[in-house]
Design a protein around this nucleic acid. Structure first.
Length: 114
DNA sequence: TAGGTGACATTGA
DNA sequence: ATCAATGCCACCT
């Protein structure tokens, strides 16, 4: 398995997030697993927080926690910006939670190994 | 250099 | 639904 430096880890996370299809979303843990680091969900979150989603072209709004809750919305400059972006893609969000999360969830591991 | 604290989490009770 | 325990890394003192 590939040994990832912190920069490589960051880059890997970026790639995964960019792969997320329109109208879908995934979780931090899923991304961590996708790069062979099942316990680094929080690091993924940290990377997302540091990355400038708008500038990097990374749809960070498609990344939520395992329950489909928008934990990161405040990182978008707050005020439901994240929710708005998701709804713009056809994802329904209620009380900071993605509706029908099970169906919206996108599994990166499947796509990568494929 | 070493140690302590925090983080966009996850899981189980 | 809410609370507590766990674990890994990055950053600051």
């Amino acid at each position: 398995m590939p040994k990832l430096d912190k920069e490589d880890f960051t880059g890997a996370v970026y790639e995964i997030v960019r792969m997320i299809p329109y109208g879908r979303a995934t979780s931090y843990g899923a991304i961590a697993k996708a790069i062979s680091h099942p316990n680094m969900s929080r690091m993924v979150g940290r990377v997302m927080g540091q990355c400038d989603s708008a500038k990097s072209g990374i749809p960070a709004h498609r990344v939520v926690n395992s329950s489909g809750v928008l934990s990161a919305k405040e990182a978008f400059g707050n005020s439901g910006e994240m929710q708005r972006l998701l709804e713009a893609e056809g994802i329904t969000v209620v009380n900071d939670r993605i509706k029908n999360w099970k169906a919206v969830f996108w599994n990166p591991v499947k796509e990568i190994n494929l």
